[in-house]
Each structure stands twice: as structure tokens, then as C-alpha cells.
Design a protein around this nucleic acid. Structure first.
Length: 795
RNA sequence: UGGCCCGUCGUCUAAUGGCAGGACACCGGUCUUUGGAACCGGCGGUGGUGGUUCGAAUCCACCCGGGCCAACCA
């Protein structure tokens, strides 16, 4: 198993290494207002997975039950079932936000006492209007400057139940003009005279997410609080609260991209609607992307875990191809599922030369040993299947007028019955033009499917013995929606469109008259089968009798050929689900923004700048002969201009390019090491920068070494000369010192040398990298490159 | 339109200034008593334009494209 190394695990590794934490504590914090879906599985696998990778680490299961009007204990049960089913164990660490209500209330009073929160008695609309818009700042509430005493009194009376719903709210006092709308005095508590499923009527005020979540994390000692991208804006209030409340913990929030899957939706609200409107048969309908749905469909926990690990964790919005999920379950089941024979759409086959028992006059029955697994799976197990003169094969496995490449039964030709005999179709019986029976002869020499004479039989098809087979129901599931992105499709169609307009009408096909071999009769519900040549199935856990759910089809390269040749779905099951054709609804293809690539790069026009900036820039051009663009970048911030001018002043040498070099360093190299600090917060000043750049210009330092020094400077301060000396960063420009290194590198990689000489010039980077590594990054790059070229060109 | 975030094969994801790699999908082939599996091979990518650097997917600037934020939801 290769090590996962996504950006979150990298952050954790760095934090552990830096000693910021002794171990890592994560949490999975669902609200019990619906069932978990595969998007949650991604989060569960991430959070519990990380906890499993470190000593002493743990992952809490916490129910974020702060909104009693939408929550229900039945969801609490379902969620625990799902997490357990996925294979994770929270041990002792089961928590409920509602258990923290008293402590959270205490934090709220603390904020009030610090003047950081106030009771607002405006109406809901007034609060909304006061918040402003993304482009207009908000206006302060008239209640914003209430005294601490009044706020405390009001808040206590809110708790005591003296007010109606909506009469007051508690808000943080932050900044009504903040660019981040969430920071415009966010609501902390609202009054809700609603019974909570755990605390009953103990409370009539309930905390909001932004207030509660970060403090819950802090209370539990969570170190890394992982959530999805849409909470990025909330991180600011998260940090603000944790810092302004007395608590001995400093959790950090990190955001990753939520999972989007093609042909389904991933929103509890929308899934709930599908359930409520009866579009599906409950939260656990096998077409639903819920954990419960996938479980009922027949997916295994391992397949879902593998899927989640396959898709990775990153920050880019993404939409995963259904094929990946299908691969995960096929990959798992291929190695586990016993093979059996099941005929979905039966076509009668009569063997005209099948023997009759001489004594009884009854047709004989041949019980054949058939392995449960093909050789390459390597598992033991077998059953006996009855073979007789009255057989059923799948309609799709016979063609009177076969397309090119058809390798099944056709008139006058042979086909092998899996594990059975080779048969030949002699006669096609029709009724009203429909094929109703095939009269065939079997070859008694081919029992088990072997051909002792060595003749090749191209096709092998599945079958059952009609008198012995069990009649069963088979449910064929397909994608829930007919478009890859139902949300986008609905949005593109307009106001009155809804995702339910894009439900796939063929997402469920029920076949009542299928026939399966009798060996399955005594198996338990938990057995997952491969119906050979058809797909993976298991018995529907919610149904009595023989009712099979299709988990996933087999990969079917014939179906693709059929699609290509005929333009129609081919495939054994008749439902290929393979056409990815765009429906009219999603004309607005939202992905892979085409225009950027299509329009040949027109030169970037620079936006207009303010007169002040322009004036400063002009002055810089005038004084130092800077490039206009560089001057403008520097000129945006007067502090940067001052810094730059001071650096030029401090320039120790007489290099005429000093002005340009300094500008380059300030523009290109400084921002990454500066971080969010302002220039005067840096532990070094213009003089040090000037000294550093001079060191590079005179050749004492390579530009690479200069970057290293700058990094140290920005972190620890000091002077460039000292750092160069302490870290031994002085550039090696001595040809005699470098030549052996170059020769060593070249000698160590004869294959690369050959490739380089063969034209793979990109390898120069590789060789340079090697030389740099050997010299600790100190080699004079120009010199090293020259020597490398020399060594590489001639043997 | 203000702020924040994000753009790497068709899709998902690595590369943390030094050989653009893997997975799924797709296309060929080998093998095959599953048109399955396995194995081998192939196709195919850094949104654009400038700049910094010996060297840029990576750093800087601008442009383009996408996402999130104006619930008393989470």
C-alpha cells in the first residue's frame, strides 16, 4: 500500500514534526438531519484514515445537533450504522454538540463581558438589510452599542424563555464593513422554542454553526478540523472565536474539495426531496448515492474505501467519473464473488438428441461439477449444476441475422454452454414472427465444455436447465439521472427547471421472469454473486424470496462494439447505460472553460491605475530607469516604494544595474517569503536586502543561494553575510572544483547520458539538479551548465 | 460587481524551482470454457500572455475560466 500524501497529510506531518502537536485528533461532524452519502464517505475515510496513521491519534464522531427543527434521532442511528459499516470505530469518542450547550453558553457570556458580542433586537429583515451586499458595506445595528450589563441581562432572559422566537439574537461585534460578509457581526444564538431530541425543552436558545463548531472542536481538543471548500469563508470567524474565548486549544480548519459524482446529486437537502416526493424508494433506494443505498445495492465497504482513496484529496473543484466507482466495486467483487448462471430474458432451447432414460422414459439429467471461481481468481469452491434437454438461454445470445463479430448462437452454428456441452442450432421456431424456441443438438463428447477433437468453439454462453431453475426477480439499476450534472442542467434550463426533470426514467428495470441455477437456493442474503457474463448481484436485503439487485454490470467490450456498429445499445442485458450523449438541457457546458484555450492569447491589458500610483510609478521610472510595469507594481504601495528607495540608497557597490536588480527581487522574490506580514513587520530591512542582492550581483552567491538567504532572513533576521557564512552558501565558481562533480554525475547516469545524446535535452535539468544536489546548491549554474554540456557532448 | 479560493491528459490526482508521473476511461495486442479477469503496448496534459531564473506546472504581474460568500441552515 503506497503512502497517501495529500496536502492535508502534508500539513499534519509538518505540524507534528514542528512539535505543534503530540498527535493528531480529527473529527467527523455530521448533522443528524439526513442520511450520509458517498461524499460523506470521502470525509469519513479521510478523517478516520488519518487517525489510523499516527500513534495515539483518534477521530471523534460528533453529532452537530444545534438545529433541533431539522434533526431526528433516527438519523443519529442511521449515521452510526453507516460509519460502522464502512469499517470505522470511534471507540469512546462519541460526542454531541448538545452536550456542550452549557459550556457554549458560557463562552457567549464571556464574549458579551468582553464587549465582543451584543444582543440585537432588530427584525430578521432589518438584520439582513443591515448586512449590506458583497459590494456595499453593512450598517451597524442600533443595538450594537448596548452596555455589557444590558446585553447580559437580555441574553439571560433569552435563555430564560422570556421572548418569542425571533425577538432577539446574539451577534458577535466584529466589523460591519468587512469584505468577508461572514464577519459582518455574525449571529451566534437564535431563539427557538422547539424541543430538542436530546435536551428536550431545557433550552430555547440554540447556537449557530459558526459559533458552535469551532468551539466544539476546541473543547474536544481537535487539532485538524477538516471540512469542505464552501467553508473557506468561515475560517475567519472560526479563528476569531477560538482566539477570543478562554480555552486551551487551538484547532485549525482546513478545507478540501467535496466529492461530486457524475449522474447524481450530493446534497442532503436534494436527496431528502427525492425521498419525500417518492421519486425513489427511501433513503436506502439502491439508486441513491447514500451509504445506505449503496449498501442495499450491494456495494462493499472495501470498495467504497478504495474508491475514496483512489480519488484523492485536493482543493480543486472536481467531478468524478462514475466509471471510477464502478471499477472499485468490480475490482473487489471479481476477487470475492462466486460465479453462478442466471438467465435474465429466457429463450427456450430444446435438445433434440438428449437421451431418455430407458427404464423410466424420463429425460436424463446430468449433474455437472462447476467451479465457483475461474482459475485466475484462485479461490476454492464448486457446486453441481443440472443439465437437461430443456434449457433456457438469454435472448440476447441468439441472433438469426447476426451482426459482424457476433460470437454467440446463430442458426446452423455451434456455441459452448458454459460448463455444459457444445450445442448446434438446427431449427428456429417462431410464433408471429417472434423466435420462441431453438431446436438444437448437443455433442455428447463435449461434456464440461471441452472439445476432445480440438476444434475451436468461439462463443461460450450461459444457460440454466428449465426444469431445475428457480424463477426469480432481478432488478437492474442504472444511473439515477440522465445528465452528468443535474444541478448544472437545471440551472441552465432556467427558473422553473428542477433536477427532477432530469431523472433517468430507466434507472430501474424489474425483470420478473428470470431463471437462476438451483444452487443459490440455500445461500444467505449476504452472498454476492457474479452472474456470469452479466454482472454482479446480490439478494435485496429488503425483499423476501429470490429478488436480486444488480450491483454493477460486467465490463462489456461487446456492448461498445455494438454501439459503434449500430448506433444502438448492444450488450447482454439490453440496458447498456453506456450512451453519454448530451441531452438538450445541458447546452451550457460548464466545464473546461473553452474560451480561454480557443482565443489565441491577446496581450494582457493592464488595468487602469489611480493617479497616485501612476505618479509614484512615473517617479520611479524617472529616477531609476525602471520598466514601466515593474514601476507600477512597486508603486501600488507607498511602503514598498519607500522600502525600494531605501534599498537603492543602501546599495553597497557601484553596479549600475542595482536599481533593476533590487526591483526584481522585491517584486518576484519577496512576496512568497513575506507571507501576510507587512514590510515593517519583517525581521530585516532594505539595507539587508541591498546587501543580499549585491552579494548575488558580485557572484558571491548564486541567485538560488540568494533565495535561500532571503528565506532565512525573512524567518530569523540577521545579516546576509552572516547567513552565507553560517550556512556555507557561498557560490562555487571554481572550475577545477566543479569539474570532478560534473564528471561524477555524468558517470553515474550512463543511461541518461545516452538519452540526452539521443535528443532528450530536457535531461539537462536532471543533470543540473544532480550537480546542485552534490554541491548543496552552491554550484555556479552557468559554469556548471557549461561543464555539463562539455562532458555530455563529447565522450 | 467586493472579498476569498481554484485552474496539470477525456476524468481524478502526483511532481513543493531540476526527467511532467500514476489511476480510471479510451484504443490496440496476448491469453481465455465469462466479449469477465490478468498481462503487454498505445493515445493523451501544465488555460493564455509577459516577467524573474542557468532552469518555471511550481515564483511575480496581467488576462481568461470556474467555485464560494449577502439563512435566525450546516
Amino acid at each position: 500500500m503506497d503512502q497517501k500524501n495529500d496536502f492535508i497529510r502534508q500539513i499534519i506531518a509538518r505540524d507534528l514534526e514542528a512539535g505543534r502537536h503530540d498527535t493528531v485528533v480529527t473529527r467527523f461532524p455530521p448533522e443528524p438531519n439526513g442520511f450520509l452519502h458517498i461524499g460523506h464517505a470521502k470525509s469519513i475515510v479521510l478523517n478516520f484514515g488519518i487517525a489510523g496513521e499516527h500513534d495515539g491519534a483518534r477521530c471523534h464522531l460528533r453529532f452537530d445537533d444545534t438545529n433541533p427543527s431539522t434533526e431526528d434521532p433516527r438519523y443519529v442511528e442511521a449515521i452510526q450504522d453507516d460509519v460502522r459499516w464502512l469499517g470505522y470505530d470511534w471507540g469512546e469518542h462519541l460526542y454531541f454538540a448538545s452536550d456542550y450547550f452549557e459550556r457554549l453558553y458560557g463562552f457567549a457570556e464571556e464574549l458579551i463581558r468582553k464587549g465582543l458580542a451584543y444582543v440585537d433586537s432588530q427584525s430578521e429583515e432589518a438584520i439582513r438589510e443591515g448586512r449590506g451586499t458583497v459590494t456595499k458595506p453593512g450598517t451597524p445595528s442600533p443595538c450594537r452599542d448596548r452596555s455589557v450589563e444590558e446585553n447580559l441581562d437580555l441574553f439571560r432572559r433569552m435563555r430564560a424563555g422570556e421572548f418569542e422566537d425571533g425577538a432577539h439574537v446574539l451577534r458577535a461585534r466584529i466589523d460591519m464593513a468587512a469584505h468577508n460578509m461572514i464577519m459582518r457581526d455574525p449571529l451566534l444564538y437564535r431563539i427557538r422554542h422547539v424541543e430538542h431530541y436530546r435536551t428536550g425543552d431545557e433550552w430555547c436558545i440554540y447556537p449557530l454553526y459558526d459559533f458552535a463548531h469551532c468551539l466544539e472542536d476546541a473543547i474536544e481538543g481537535i487539532t485538524h478540523s477538516l471540512c469542505t471548500l464552501e467553508f473557506e469563508n468561515n475560517r475567519e470567524i472560526y479563528d476569531w472565536l477560538v482566539e477570543n474565548v478562554t480555552i486551551d486549544a487551538r484547532p485549525r480548519q482546513y478545507e478540501f474539495a467535496r466529492l461530486n459524482l457524475d449522474y447524481t446529486v450530493m446534497s442532503k437537502r436534494k436527496l431528502l426531496r427525492l425521498v419525500k416526493e417518492g421519486r425513489v424508494d427511501g433513503w436506502d433506494d439502491p439508486r441513491m448515492p447514500t451509504i445506505a443505498g449503496l449498501r442495499r445495492r450491494g456495494f462493499t465497504p472495501a470498495s467504497i474505501r478504495n474508491f475514496c482513496e483512489m480519488i484523492g484529496v485536493a482543493k480543486a473543484d472536481s467531478r468524478v467519473d462514475m466509471g471510477k466507482l464502478e471499477y472499485a466495486i468490480r475490482d473487489d467483487l471479481n476477487r470475492k464473488a462466486p460465479r453462478v448462471l442466471c438467465v435474465l430474458r429466457p429463450l427456450r432451447v430444446t435438445l433434440t438428441n438428449w437421451p431418455v432414460d430407458a427404464e423410466t422414459g424420463e429425460p436424463e439429467v446430468d449433474w455437472i461439477d462447476a467451479p465457483h471461481f475461474p482459475r485466475d481468481v484462485g479461490l476454492e469452491g464448486a457446486r453441481r449444476v443440472p443439465f437437461s434437454g430443456e434449457l433456457l438461454i438469454d435472448e440476447a445470445d441468439f441472433a438469426e441475422d447476426p451482426p459482424k463479430g457476433f460470437r454467440r448462437l446463430v442458426p446452423g452454428e455451434e456455441v459452448r454452454l458454459r460448463y455444459g456441452y457444445v450445442i448446434r442450432c438446427d431449427e428456429v421456431v417462431k410464433e408471429d414472427g417472434r423466435v420462441v424456441e431453438l431446436r438444437c443438438s448437443y455433442d455428447p463428447e463435449t461434456r464440461g465444455g471441452d472439445t476432445p477433437d480440438g476444434r475451436k468453439v468461439k462463443g461460450t454462453i450461459h444457460w440454466v436447465s428449465a426444469p431445475h431453475a428457480e424463477r426469480c426477480t432481478v432488478r437492474l439499476y442504472d444511473r439515477l439521472f440522465s445528465v452528468p450534472d443535474p444541478d448544472a442542467a437545471a440551472a441552465a434550463r432556467g427558473e422553473d427547471a428542477d433536477i427532477s426533470d432530469f431523472l433517468n426514467p430507466e434507472s430501474l428495470e424489474v425483470i420478473e421472469g428470470a431463471y437462476i441455477e438451483p444452487s443459490v437456493r440455500d445461500d444467505g442474503f449476504e452472498t454476492r454473486y457474479q452472474f456470469e457474463r452479466v454482472g454482479y448481484f446480490w439478494r435485496d436485503p429488503g425483499s423476501d424470496g429470490l429478488v436480486f439487485n444488480r450491483i454493477v454490470t460486467l465490463r462489456d467490450s461487446w456492448a461498445k462494439v455494438g454501439t459503434k456498429l449500430t448506433g444502438l445499445g448492444g450488450g447482454t442485458s439490453g440496458d447498456d447505460g453506456a450512451d453519454g450523449a448530451e441531452r438538450p438541457g445541458d447546452s451550457a457546458e460548464s466545464r473546461s472553460g473553452g474560451s480561454g484555450a480557443a482565443i489565441p492569447g491577446k496581450p494582457g491589458e493592464r488595468p487602469p491605475v489611480s493617479p497616485e500610483v501612476q505618479a509614484r510609478a512615473d517617479a520611479l521610472v524617472e529616477a531609476f530607469g525602471l520598466d514601466a510595469v515593474d514601476a507600477e507594481i512597486l508603486a501600488r504601495d507607498p511602503a514598498v516604494v519607500d522600502f525600494y528607495r531605501a534599498a537603492v540608497q543602501a546599495w553597497p557597490g557601484e553596479d549600475s544595474d542595482a536599481a533593476t536588480s533590487l526591483a526584481n527581487w522585491i517584486i518576484n522574490a519577496l512576496p512568497p517569503v513575506q507571507g501576510s506580514r507587512s514590510l515593517d513587520q519583517l525581521p530585516f530591512g532594505p539595507a539587508e536586502l541591498a546587501e543580499l542582492v549585491a552579494l548575488v550581483e558580485e557572484g558571491t552567491l548564486s541567485s538560488r543561494g540568494g533565495s535561500e538567504v532571503l528565506e532565512v532572513l525573512a524567518r530569523d533576521g540577521g545579516t546576509p553575510a552572516d547567513i552565507v557564512e553560517k550556512l556555507d552558501l557561498a557560490q562555487v565558481s571554481d572550475e577545477d572544483a566543479l569539474r570532478p562533480v560534473v564528471q561524477r554525475v555524468v558517470a553515474a547516469h550512463p543511461d541518461k547520458v545516452e538519452a540526452f545524446r539521443g535528443g532528450k535535452t530536457g535531461l539537462m535539468g536532471f543533470f543540473m539538479g544532480q550537480v546542485m544536489r552534490e554541491t548543496g546548491g552552491k554550484a555556479d549554474p552557468e559554469l556548471a551548465q557549461g561543464l555539463l554540456r562539455e562532458a555530455l557532448d563529447g565522450p
